[in-house]
Design a protein around this nucleic acid. Structure first.
Lengths: 336, 336
DNA sequence: GCTACGACACAAAACGTTTTGTATTCGGGG
DNA sequence: CCCCGAATACAAAACGTTTTGTGTCGTAGC
């Protein structure tokens, strides 16, 4: 009389161990004491039968799924896989499973992605998508899912935020260019309404102001945080006269696109025009000339998001929202 | 008398619509006919109450989780995020959630990762980890989880495989180098026991044989599929005398590392030594000199894995294992 | 030698679905 | 006029856990 082919039940374990189902559950969870003898017996049976608790049943009872979701704007941007890796560094050891969703895919936009993720009832969400609207965030809030955002405007009712100090980062780059004597410093930005764009632009403006330089709207261009966006923006900016002699880019991808175009136009970098990026993705050091950029600690950001989320899930903190700001670092290479 | 704060039940929906729970379920699943009037009423109530089925309860009954896992060896290698993106292209529209797990992380190795993923009872797994052992695959098989592998040795009992024709790919690269007159062509490989390493090496050997060239073991070096691995291998190979005049690398990351070292040694590429990669990650075209490599259609591979898995889950095919081979393409740039 | 208490074990009630086995109702063919 | 089947709705039994409320021992305190 074999136990049939199906996976064993908690009841099967209890029967084989000669105890009640409750006891097995307590052995598993440790929520009530179980004698050493009994525990050993139960554990032996579990091992022997190869019993694995059914997560759906468990989750149905406990209202938690032990899984969290990461929503990114573009998996193709190497910054985000690093965030994912950092997140996993932390989550894996706590037994959480990480789901990664790219919001830029053939989906009908972020609201759909959010619904999709929410339909799976994850315990927490790390939202790295700068396209998120208040309504998206509300949707998550109403569902009761814990939320940590990667950047964005800090508002108490919207939960925790982890970010790097982008404003200072760009400020440092621009100051560096000013020090090196660049005169007409242009800014090549990503999506104009995205929060990262805005705070990076702020850094640009602050640095110019501090140096007593004018802020010329004609030297500021917005597009998208992609290589293509950078190419298009560079074409626009470099065709102005007088021509800018430095292109400060909103991220490294933009800088790469700008570099493509600059080369096409027969301009030398950094001779005719300096180009800087942001993030310090691996490609930044590979490209020629190697890109002056700002290190954005992607992996550490991911880890921090993970820890924050875990703490929230464990109820470690009170409800006060937190904003954690991580250090950046200017990396000067050959493109400036 | 409000419905309390909690999310509405299927029972709450039934009550509000004046029908039975069964009927609501049938409206949702369409497994039995429901009159148009009733259906409309129920749908209206669902909308109004904001009812969302509880996935745990559903999954407890149906034994399916509508989620699948992707296990990769290294998220830091830009090849894999692209695979993930391709997978999602396909899965998202079918309502599946994708979990991505990096097996190279602080985990205790692949077996642990596999257990971790299996503990969540995903419906299917895409296993892209070349470090997978037969035992890992067995574990997955026993759990009843559908499996599609990204590369690896094809064996009927191990399920489907999707891969590119790496042997031919490397063969084409090597033939190209021979055509260009390179004489001492070395091969700089990844993990020696990994399947991709073996079949790529095979392409190298085949091309040499076809050209009537000897295969010199001293010109073959194994390491890891990383930038560091490439650096170390290049150091070893380039210190031999006579020095190789071409380094065929097992993937682009290796090639980048090899390029680092070649430059350090003051050698010119492709003048003193040619370097080629494999995969055609974005960095391959960014680096200077731009890398001659083989396009490995990562995104399409991901899509194909997704489609295969979905078909399996839908029971579309019989049990016969399938191996799908995708086309590669030689891309000649400046490094050869 | 009792009482009270700690340590341990158990039975049964949730958790929120899907699905199966029956009712009903209605219209049409014999 | 009756019977039968199609169309539709319902009640109740799973699915596999966790958790609460009791119960039963021993054992220590008095």
């Amino acid at each position: 009389m074999r136990e049939s082919g199906g996976r064993p039940d908690i009841a099967a374990v209890a029967a084989a161990a000669g105890v009640s189902v409750t006891t097995v559950s307590h052995v598993l969870s440790g929520r009530r004491p179980v004698s050493a003898r009994t525990r050993a017996k139960v554990e032996a049976v579990i091992e022997e039968l190869g019993y694995r608790p059914n997560p759906s049943a468990r989750s149905l009872r406990t209202h938690r799924s032990e899984s969290i979701a990461l929503i990114v704007p573009d998996l193709t941007n190497p910054f985000y896989p690093l965030v994912a890796a950092g997140l996993q560094d932390v989550l894996m050891s706590s037994g959480y499973l990480l789901s990664v969703t790219d919001a830029a895919l053939p989906s009908r936009g972020l609201p759909e992605v959010v619904r999709h993720v929410l339909a799976r009832r994850v315990d927490g969400i790390v939202l790295a998508s700068y396209g998120a609207t208040d309504s998206d965030i509300d949707t998550i809030g109403e569902s009761g899912t814990k939320l940590v955002r990667l950047g964005g405007r800090f508002r108490a009712e919207f939960g925790d935020i982890v970010r790097a100090d982008d404003t200072s980062g760009v400020h440092d780059v621009v100051s560096h260019l000013i020090d090196r004597g660049y005169q007409r410093i242009a800014f090549l930005n990503g999506e104009p309404h995205a929060h990262p764009s805005q705070i990076r632009l702020e850094g640009y403006e602050r640095a110019l102001r501090e140096a007593g330089r004018p802020i010329l709207p004609g030297l500021i261009h917005s597009g998208t945080f992609t290589r293509a966006g950078g190419a298009e923006g560079a074409r626009a900016l470099l065709s102005r006269s007088p021509r800018p002699d430095a292109l400060v880019c909103g991220n490294d991808l933009i800088a790469v696109g700008a570099l493509d175009v600059t080369r096409q136009l027969g301009l030398s970098v950094p001779g005719d025009v300096a180009i800087t990026g942001y993030d310090d993705i691996e490609a930044a050091s590979l490209i020629t000339p190697a890109l002056t950029t700002v290190l954005n600690p992607a992996r550490e950001i991911g880890r921090t998001c993970g820890r924050l989320l875990l703490d929230r899930l464990a109820g470690e903190y009170d409800d006060t929202a937190r904003e954690i700001v991580l250090a950046h670092r200017l990396i000067v290479r050959d493109s400036s």
